[in-house]
Simulated assay, not measured.
Amino acid sequence: MTFWTASLCRVPTVSPAQRSLTTTASALLGAIPLITLTMWFVLAADGIGDFPPTWAPSFVLLAAALAYAFCELAGFRTPPLQHSDRPPAEVEAESWRRFTASTFVRFAVCEAVFLISMPLAFVVDSFWMILIGAVLAVPLFLWEVWPGARNQQRFAAALEAGGIPSHLTGRVQDY
C-alpha cells in the first residue's frame, strides 16, 4: 500500500465521550421537529393560520439574537486546565466532562428560543410562531451546540489557555 492510499484510507478515531455526546445531541435536536409536528395537531386544525402581529416574531427573533450572543461571548468560556501529574487519559476525561456541561448550557439557551415561541403561538393563535421558533432554533443549535470540530476547537482553546494540553480534539490547539 502506498503512502497516499494509506493516508486516504485512514478513518479518524472518535472517542467514546464524543460518540456519546453526539448521540445525545442528535436526540436533543430531534425533539424540535417532533414537538413542531405535535403542535401542528394542536394549533393548525384550521390551517396554518394568519401571520401573527409583528411584535410576536420580533420577540422570538430577539430571543434568538440574545441566545447567539450569549453562546458566542460566554458559552465557550471555562477556566484553563491546571498543571498536575495526572495521566493524559484523566485530563481528557475532565476535558470531555467540562465540554459536555458547557454543551448542555448552550443547548438550554438555544432551546429557549423554540420554547418561547410555543406560548406565544397560543397567545396569537397561530402555528406560524412554532415554525418561526423552529426555523431559528435548529440552525442556532447546529452552530452553537453540535459537538463538531468548530465547537470542540473553541472549547479546547479555552481549556489550553494555561498551556496544558486538553486532549479534547486529539491534538494540542495551535491558536
Score class of each variant (00 low, 15 high):
164 I>F: 08
21 L>N: 00
46 D>N: 09
17 A>I: 04
143 W>Q: 06
108 A>M: 06
9 C>T: 15
158 A>N: 11
60 V>G: 01
122 F>N: 11
4 W>P: 09
103 T>N: 02
118 M>H: 02
108 A>T: 06
18 Q>I: 01
7 S>G: 06
77 R>N: 14
89 A>R: 14
137 A>G: 08
61 L>H: 01
109 V>A: 02
170 G>H: 02
143 W>C: 07
64 A>Q: 01
84 S>T: 10
70 F>A: 04
162 G>A: 09
104 F>K: 01
24 T>V: 08
2 T>D: 15
85 D>A: 13
8 L>K: 08
128 W>F: 15
143 W>D: 10
46 D>S: 10
123 V>Q: 12
164 I>E: 10
87 P>V: 10
68 Y>T: 03
75 G>P: 00
13 T>S: 12
52 P>Q: 12
175 Y>H: 13
4 W>M: 14
155 F>I: 11
95 S>F: 10
79 P>G: 13
23 T>A: 13
30 G>W: 00
80 P>C: 13
32 I>L: 08
149 A>P: 12
35 I>D: 03
162 G>V: 04
69 A>R: 05
136 L>G: 02
35 I>H: 02
153 Q>G: 14
10 R>G: 13
69 A>E: 05
113 V>P: 00
85 D>L: 15
76 F>G: 05
149 A>V: 14
27 A>G: 11
130 I>D: 12
42 V>L: 14
71 C>S: 02
